[in-house]
Design a protein around this nucleic acid. Structure first.
Lengths: 112, 112
DNA sequence: ACATACTGTATGCGTTGAGCACATAGTGGG
DNA sequence: CCCACTATGTGCTCAACGCATACAGTATGT
């Protein structure tokens, strides 16, 4: 059978960050931008343009989907996104791949 | 002061794999190819062309350097590579970045 | 009411990195 | 001496991102 997950790997750093961010709840683009900026301490210089394009692509690939804005939302410009079941599986597979890589890094004595 | 490490991050998955591989000793390209193929179980479909081009780029950026072939080497086609001091620092920084990402993944309950 | 700054999404342009096919040469076994 | 395998490398193309820029909605101050 053809694996629905494998062809999406490896995820780009940007794509993986987005999926991680949305794994903890539905959010709109700009909120994701600020969250990643804060979590990485600005180390991953993520530009707005890159983010919105990446999200559009992820929707296209079926890893994300757009959702209705929550009830109390006042700003009608905001577009909310959620991770699909497939997106969650892909993110999990990517996390496992990275985990294996870090095992190798530990063996190579790059970490403590 | 200008940071010599940051501008290299994030590394591409291919570049990081190569640096990891060479962290455990000097090797030639094809050996790296087979080692990555085996370690990732073929999941990272690394093509020869991508590998050699990536290595040339890493040499250009000062993360790798070419070295003399070991004494007992019989196949004169082989070109040996080693990680530079900068390359090792960059690989370490990338490993730390990924480690932080995986922490976030664990919080998002993507891992066990 | 109006100016201004900030929030939020999006597109145009150029560069870079990788997939894939292919080229070419050296090595070793039957 | 074939032929398969090892080993490195190039041409073509496309995907993803950095950066600049555009533009609309929102909030704040005077």
């Amino acid at each position: 059978m053809t694996d629905p997950i494998d062809p999406h790997l490896p995820l780009t750093p940007v794509a993986f960050e987005i999926l991680l961010c949305l794994s903890t709840g539905e959010k709109h683009g700009y909120a994701i931008l600020r969250e990643i900026e804060e979590r990485t301490g600005g180390r991953l210089g993520l530009h707005a343009g890159s983010l919105y394009r990446a999200m559009a692509r992820l929707v296209d690939e079926g890893l994300l989907r757009t959702v209705e804005a929550p009830e109390r939302e006042s700003d009608r410009r905001r577009r909310y996104y959620a991770v699909t079941a497939l997106g969650r599986e892909v993110a999990r597979a990517e996390a496992l791949r990275l985990h294996a890589q870090l095992e190798a890094a530990r063996i190579a004595d790059l970490l403590g």
